[in-house]
Design a protein around this nucleic acid. Structure first.
Lengths: 156, 156
DNA sequence: CAGATCTCAGCTATACTGAAATGC
DNA sequence: CGCATTTCAGTATAGCTGAGATCT
């Protein structure tokens, strides 16, 4: 690119274009799109007083029933030590219950409570709003394409 | 999935399905796809002895010429304090040069060196390999669709 | 004994904030 | 004075590792 290298520019205006290399790089675009998505998500969850881990854990408990912490970790792809911390928070709010497993002394059986199910339903609505906000620029066809393409990448 | 909820399962097998709610959620799929992309990217860059910030800064310097650190930050969307740290690393490897701006005592003029340009070209090749690896499951048409859709999300 | 589970302490990378020092 | 620039110190989060205690 040729700009007079001798003149460092006044304060270099407002916009400031980005390097062309990046603007067509799929890894870069993917990273930026995910950053925006993450922003919408965590903002909305924070308003609801929750975090992403909470939703993933509550969803797994509701869909698969009571489970040990290790199984929850596998199902939600959350690290064992983050499962511990997140369940501490959920338990503090009485959204889940932790009980020693009578049939296996190493395990806790984690159960979603009625309050937890109500919270999950609320978070479902919050998340639906975020999807709508994220996909606002897309037509219905594009939404289908987008999800289909992402699944091909995510499933590996 | 119906498994007897009363039986916490032996070690709950290998796979462990994920909650259905997540598997169709665009924000979730996007996050997972980006995680995979990020993994490929940082692995490849690490082999080359670089990090993402380095590539972004070198690309901006090569495309727009010498610039102040503040301008580099705006062009690459890297925080001012991360620009400082990354330039320290690039300068240590003699890939960029920092000189006081004679026309503005607050600024440094950052210039890419010949070694920096060679490094950038090498990183271009590394990055091209990563794109290929990431997009391997896609046809040419799908690659075009994917990039087009991502740009719509990223450009806001 | 090997291996699974739960927990805690701590680490890394990314991204950001606050404030000081300097200069315009 | 207000504002921009560079720098440093510190914070927050997500994701991960290591190790100990306990149990199968």
């Amino acid at each position: 690119m040729d700009r007079p290298p001798s003149q460092p520019s006044p304060a270099s205006s407002p916009g400031d274009a980005q390097p062309a290399r990046l603007e067509t790089l799929p890894t870069w675009l993917l990273s930026r799109a995910a950053a925006r998505s993450h922003q919408l998500l965590t903002d909305a969850l924070q308003v609801a007083g929750a975090r992403g881990y909470h939703y993933r854990l509550l969803a797994a408990l509701e869909e698969f029933g009571p489970a040990s912490q290790a199984e929850l970790g596998r199902r939600t792809d959350i690290d064992r030590s983050d499962v511990v911390a997140s369940l501490n928070e959920l338990e503090r709010d009485a959204l889940v219950r932790r009980q020693p497993d009578p049939s296996d002394g190493r395990r806790n059986v984690v159960t979603i409570t009625a309050a937890g199910e109500r919270r999950l339903q609320k978070l479902d609505r919050v998340l639906a709003g975020v999807q709508e906000e994220l996909l606002a620029p897309f037509s219905d066809d594009e939404r289908g394409d987008f999800v289909r393409l992402l699944r091909q990448l995510a499933e590996r």
